[in-house]
């Protein structure tokens, strides 16, 4: 069978396309909520690590937890983390496995995002903090109103990369039985349907590419908007 006509066959079959759309929906659902969770965790961990040298006593325990978190998550494969979460920690009857996947990828992403955010905050000139404090703003206000807005601009490209990587990494949820875009392609390619894996995999690839391409475009636009006040 010709690859091109195979692709046409998938796009014109409502049955096949419903697998694709549902799979894409799952992929996006997990990616969006996991990246939001990752962003929140990343900001918290970054702020704890940044504030720790100034408040050693109060943040001793949180800092130790954050350090262990980042080390463990970054040091182990995400597929293994997913298996541990699905087959051990959340091996509860009736617990939606999609939520477990969101938690896994969110926690995973948070560890990476925290490091980029930390680097972004540290890259803001110390004079900015001093200027804020000299005006009588508190440390928190200075961070929120002066440092973080500038840090965000610095971290958008790396966070964007992280998001793109996350979308593609979620394809391993097909290993725990979630019908995402990758799993949908596998179903369509099975013997009782097309009996050809190459074509549906190519279709899945087209959709992944499209999502990543659109996201890249959005990231570039956001970056450009935020850069308008920069030194030329």
């Amino acid at each position: 069978m010709n690859i091109f006509s195979g692709i046409i066959e998938i796009f014109t079959s409502t049955d096949y396309m419903s697998y694709v759309w549902n799979g894409l929906g799952k992929t996006l659902l997990i990616s969006v909520f996991a990246s939001l969770l990752g962003l929140v965790l990343g900001i918290i961990v970054a702020l704890v690590k940044i504030s720790y040298p100034k408040r050693k006593k109060a943040l001793c325990v949180p800092n130790a937890i954050c350090s262990a978190y980042v080390t463990i998550i970054r040091g182990t494969p995400v597929a293994l983390q997913l298996f541990i979460m699905v087959f051990a920690i959340f091996a509860i009857r009736g617990f939606p496995v999609e939520i477990t996947a969101i938690l896994t990828f969110g926690i995973n992403s948070g560890a990476y995002v925290s490091e980029s955010i930390r680097a972004g905050i540290l890259s803001v000139d110390k004079g900015q903090t001093e200027a804020g404090l000299s005006l009588g703003l508190s440390g928190g206000q200075t961070m929120r109103l002066i440092v973080i807005p500038q840090a965000i601009k610095n971290v958008i490209p790396t966070i964007g990369n992280e998001l793109i990587a996350l979308i593609k990494e979620t394809s391993i949820v097909s290993m725990v039985g979630i019908v995402d875009l990758t799993f949908a392609a596998k179903i369509i390619g099975a013997g009782d349907k097309m009996a050809d894996y190459l074509v549906p995999m190519l279709v899945a690839a087209i959709f992944y590419l499209a999502v990543v391409y659109i996201l890249t475009f959005v990231i570039k636009y956001v970056e450009k908007r935020l850069r308008r006040g920069d030194r030329t």
């Binding site: 900015q128 200027a131 000299s134 807005p149 030194r231």
Partner: peptide, 10 residues
């Protein structure tokens, strides 16, 4: 300050 420390985003 010597280096002004204006806020570039404002």
């Amino acid at each position: 300050f010597q280096h002004f420390n204006l806020f570039p985003h404002l």
